[in-house]
Design a protein around this nucleic acid. Sequence first.
DNA 1: CCTATAGATTACCGTACAGTAATATATCTT
DNA 2: AAGATATATTACTGTACGGTAATCTATAGG
Lengths: 101, 101
Amino acid sequence: MLADPTRRRVLDLLAEHGTLTVGGLAARFPDLVPSGISKHLMVLRAAGLVTATRQGRQRLYRIAPDVLTTALLPWLAKYAPYWSDALERLRGLVEDGEAPA
Amino acid sequence: MLADPTRRRVLDLLAEHGTLTVGGLAARFPDLVPSGISKHLMVLRAAGLVTATRQGRQRLYRIAPDVLTTALLPWLAKYAPYWSDALERLRGLVEDGEAPA
DNA sequence: CCTATAGATTACCGTACAGTAATATATCTT
DNA sequence: AAGATATATTACTGTACGGTAATCTATAGG
């Protein structure tokens, strides 16, 4: 699941920006095609790690707020050594009591 | 090809140890089964990046010496940003004119 | 209102990599 | 020398991820 670097980067970007559209996310992955990002988002959504809200024809994705503390961080703690530094910022966000937008 | 982290790590280990058996390599990959390592070695061998010599029932693998300077390093230079620091040591080895055993 | 376009998702397919099990080859034991 | 064991490879299979193309939904334009 989160073993996939692309999905970790997606979470990282969402943590950083608070909210992003599929296209906005896809633009950050020059080597991937948007439908690929969409598929990753579907997986993340099925896992309850992100939520989406329609906004016209776009869809705004964000990290599921409650999941941050209950699921993601424990997971992070366990596998931290294998991860990119980027996600560490996510931990920082939470430790400051700051909900990611 | 070398986009695969396992293969990069294999090359790294060979650069570090000079020579290793399949089992010796496999022991460094607790999450992989030996046949998997063997398959990676086959790929690397087909690509001419490593060579093997029999030693009883084991097989000693090493980085193909001439390939180091002619193929691997240019490749490294191109994709360096995506790589682990570990392989940087390989570059160091060569710049010191040191053939990896 | 009907068509065209934008954004997102889904359907379908190919490839790469991992595992288990089977197979080859060499060494050891008796 | 024959069988048992060690080491490595191969055969076969499943799964995950990526791409292209088709589809869905919403907006924009005439």
